[in-house]
């Protein structure tokens, strides 16, 4: 099982614990599995078949650039976080 951490506001709004567990071969079906356990989560994470603009998934310390098709082999934790603007 992969440890999943959702953003504070989703946890607050939907009453999801700080840390949950789920499985999936890729990010898309992992999110589907989370949705089964905690209905409503998917709406916050996915939009038009893609990770929602403004949302990012950090898979074992690396922010995925592949999005929902990212394969999850040997992954221990995933953090969903608001994506970050900035830079010079």
């Amino acid at each position: 099982m992969i440890k999943i951490f959702l953003p504070y506001k989703i946890r607050e709004t939907l009453g999801v614990p700080t840390e949950i567990e789920a499985d999936g071969s890729n990010l898309r079906n992992l999110i589907d599995h989370i949705e089964d356990a905690y209905p409503g989560v998917k709406d916050y994470l996915v939009d038009e078949g893609k990770l929602k603009p403004g949302m990012s998934a950090v898979i074992d310390g690396k922010t995925t650039r592949l999005g929902l098709i990212h394969k999850l082999d040997d992954v221990s934790e995933i953090h969903f976080l608001p994506s970050i603007a900035g830079g010079s």
Binding site: P53, G54, M55, S56, S83, A85, G86, G87
Partner: peptide, 9 residues
């Protein structure tokens, strides 16, 4: 409409 998710968000 929200644009992008990086610099020019």
């Amino acid at each position: 409409v929200v644009r992008g998710n990086s610099e020019e968000s």
